[in-house]
Design a protein around this nucleic acid. Structure first.
Lengths: 138, 138
DNA sequence: ACTTAAATGAAAAAGCTTCTCATTCTTATT
DNA sequence: AATAAGAATGAGAAGCTTTTTCATTTAAGT
């Protein structure tokens, strides 16, 4: 029922938007560059322009459907909002992204906030490194 | 004694590198885009090409003299490394920034990287919240 | 000073992303 | 269903930041 999501977001139900939402929801990957989405669309037989992909992803971000990440890879990466919090570990060589969740770190952040007099609302943690594959290539 | 720093980094002591290091060390600001550095150089009467600024900043990063941040502004921001690693806690109301360092979080990040097969090179942690002052105003 | 390898500047090129504008499509209304 | 009005799209141009190229200049050791 993607069209519902689109309507709720105040967006007209157009083929590009439906298809892009479909890609984001059904692909195994979780993180997509605009280029990734564009290529997946081509693979599935949809001739949707790259400019439209950028436009739609930006609209989805504004509508809260996706989150845009600024990893150290030089380009934006988009991720569907599924509600389950997690942090990211990013390969600085190939751009691969893995997710992790650490209870202790989460708790420590609250402790730190409290000690600093802050009421914590959010956080953002990226670990950067070289992934297994890229280490082999060195 | 900037020339010492450059030599230690394995870099020839050239006028552009000395001047750029000077800018980074003596300006009040803490974060600089390449363009910022370029303009400050012009203001101080140095005609140094933008390409050189980029090259030098990249070399400084490789040498560990500066850190490159990727904010959501669309361009890189550079910051002098003052040796003391710390993370940031940012007030979402007034923009106040405090620094903190937590040994346990640092260690956990290494553990997580290892478990994920990554060789960790860096990390980036921001906590967002409402600071003491701003809580009073609510 | 001299030599050699490295650094620089200017301009071109390279990525990623946004903008322009003519055409097409969605949606609300007959 | 047909229509009208406005929004969305596609293709290419343009915009920005950053990197590369290459001829020229400069630093550092002999």
């Amino acid at each position: 029922m993607e069209s519902k999501d689109l309507r709720n977001a105040g967006l007209k139900v157009t083929l590009p938007r439906v298809k892009i939402l479909e890609i984001l929801e059904t692909s195994k990957a979780r993180h997509f560059s605009a280029e990734d989405v564009y290529k997946l669309l081509l693979e599935s037989g949809e001739e949707i322009g790259l400019a439209t992909v950028y436009r739609v992803l930006t609209q989805f971000e504004a509508a809260g459907l996706v989150t845009r990440h600024h990893f150290d890879t030089g380009h934006s990466v988009f991720e569907m909002n599924l509600g389950n919090h997690h942090d990211h570990i990013v390969c600085v060589k190939c751009g691969r992204v893995d997710e992790f969740f650490d209870e202790t770190i989460e708790k420590l952040q609250h402790d730190i906030s409290e000690k600093a007099g802050y009421k914590m609302t959010d956080h953002c943690l990226y670990i950067y490194g070289v992934c297994e594959e890229c280490q082999k290539l060195e």
